[in-house]
């Protein structure tokens, strides 16, 4: 019963967050100072088909209907998945352009973030357990140094060294041009080869954050009486470490995993740009270069919804990890 209540309250929260994102998205072009919307609009006039211009007009709030009516029309459109036509890919609708990009982003970033979280968390457990040990003394500063580089810059460097100079990895796109997408081993292998380097760059940069936060929460838990008691009970150090310490220390980390997801995702978008990886980040670059505002806004919404969905998955994971979300008193 209270599992459902927990999930319902989380869903309610995501609905509010989604609503806020939608509203920001709607008002963005309408609140601009000095009416640059008209200026931008003017630039496109004569270069685009009339339908595309109409879409832009709607996106910029230059339509004639009163504001609140525009707002409800907009909400109705978004709820049916209609983000209008893309300017740069006209007449393709924004939703179609985004669809495939989102898939690639989820693949790349999902893979990288999950691997990074697992490795970083495990390293954090060991570092805290052997506090002041070799791992604990060397790894955090090294990873702090690596994590100090911007995501995309490290991606550039890795692409330059391993892609261009050494030629170990493919340098662009999500798969080789000559392969048709299919569930074959060749294609999957090809996709993984293309994802490896960008994923690796994201993993390396984000590892330190997970390690440090797990280390700190583990150290806090290790100071608890429950750990002293578990030791006195005669449990083996390994059991104390995993079943009593790590099992509890991971709970706040899983919660912040959801929160940090948006941040890591933001960085990964730029990594996509560096690698020409056809995800939402690369689309964002295209949209900026061609001033395709409807596409930009659609991407923002799609990414937001994806992050909200991922957070909901984290909530479900929490139900399994923390009995306090499962059973109230």
């Amino acid at each position: 019963m209270s599992v459902l209540r927990f999930l319902a309250s989380r869903l309610g929260f995501y609905a509010i967050a989604a609503f806020v994102a939608l509203t920001i998205n709607f008002f963005l072009p309408r609140l601009l100072p000095g009416d640059p919307a008209t200026a931008i609009f003017g630039r496109f006039q004569g270069k685009l088909q009339p339908e595309a211009l109409e879409a832009l007009k709607e996106a910029f709030g230059l339509a004639d209907a009163p504001l609140f009516e525009q707002y409800f029309t907009y909400l109705g459109h978004v709820l049916t998945g209609d983000f209008g036509p893309s300017v740069s890919h006209f007449p393709e609708p924004v939703s179609a352009v985004i669809g495939q990009g989102l898939l690639w982003t989820v693949l790349l970033v999902g893979l990288a973030v999950v691997i990074s979280f697992i490795i970083g968390t495990a390293l954090g457990v060991f570092a805290a357990w052997r506090r002041g040990g070799r791992l604990d003394r060397w790894l955090p500063p090294i990873l702090a140094l690596v994590g100090a580089f911007p995501y995309f810059w490290l991606a550039m460097l890795m692409l330059y060294i391993f892609g261009f100079e050494l030629g170990w990895f493919p340098v662009r796109h999500a798969h080789s041009d000559h392969l048709e997408p299919a569930w074959t081993l060749t294609f999957i292998g090809d996709v993984l080869a293309h994802a490896a380097l960008p994923a690796l760059s994201v993993i390396i940069v984000s590892l330190g954050g997970w390690l440090l936060s797990m280390r700190n929460s583990m150290i806090a838990v290790l100071g608890d009486e429950s750990i002293a008691l578990a030791r006195m009970k005669g449990l083996s150090p390994r059991k104390v470490m995993w079943r009593y310490a790590a099992r509890n220390a991971i709970i706040p980390n899983v919660t912040s995993f959801g929160m940090a997801l948006g941040f890591v995702l933001g960085g990964s978008l730029l990594t996509e740009v560096v690698f020409g990886y056809p995800g939402t980040g690369y689309l964002m670059l295209e949209a900026i270069q061609s001033q395709d505002y409807p596409l930009m806004q659609g991407l923002f919404l799609a990414i937001t919804l994806a992050v909200l969905a991922a957070n909901f998955l984290v909530d479900i994971a929490l139900i399994f990890i923390d009995p306090r979300t499962r059973i109230r008193r």
């Binding site: 929260f13 967050a17 806020v20 920001i24 933001g266 964002m284 900026i288 937001t304």
Partner: peptide, 17 residues
């Protein structure tokens, strides 16, 4: 709400406008 809305994509869209 502000935490869960991904910051960089929002910042990109804002800055673009």
């Amino acid at each position: 709400v502000f935490l869960v809305i991904p910051g960089l994509p929002l910042a990109i869209v804002l800055a673009a406008f």
